[in-house]
Amino acid sequence: MNSVSPAHDSAAHSHGVALAAERRWSVIVAVIITLLVLMMIFTGLHWGAMPPSRVETINSRTLHLSGEFVENNLGTSIGADGKVVARLIAQQYSFEPQCIVVPAEMPVTFRGTSTDAVHGFVVGTTNANVMLIPGFVATFTTTFKKTGEQLMPCHEYCGTGHEAMWARVQVIPPGEFMARANGGQRLNCVSR
């Protein structure tokens, strides 16, 4: 690859040693990177572990008037296909509903959007974590392993009230959830 002046034999030798060491390291680097990428592909396909969502839009100015995100459709329900869906909206500076009920050990699909600024949330110590961008519907499916209550803060700066924007998630036993949700109600745990 490189031409070396023949006058410096020892220099050429040490240069060769240096190049060989460099090559070995380059191979190690390539192996590390390949392993990382393969791991992403494997977990992505095998566990279906993908980052949330596809590109789905919604008109943020009219979503409170009609369609999926009107107030009485928010909360957790069992869909016609038997799947559990939790619908919510974020606005400065609260979530609707402020307390979300979900069953443990069952896949729960979250569908959410924002009516104003960019928001987001993370549920306690779980991996449920998504951005809510006005104009788009964020969707992801997750399963909560343990019952109990977790905090659900807004985790994206959304204005001067951002620090006060906290909701809660109550994870209840699946049997109890099914009993309460069977009539097609939209469940939440906001105290009245």
Partner: peptide, 27 residues
């Protein structure tokens, strides 16, 4: 990655290229 306005496919492509950018640092 957690945003709804980009599809999962391009998120994956960007993840792979991000792995590549660690190469100059490792070198």
């Amino acid at each position: 990655f957690a945003d709804p306005q980009v599809g999962a496919g391009f998120k994956f492509v960007h993840a792979v290229f991000t792995a590549m950018v660690s190469v100059p640092t490792l070198l």
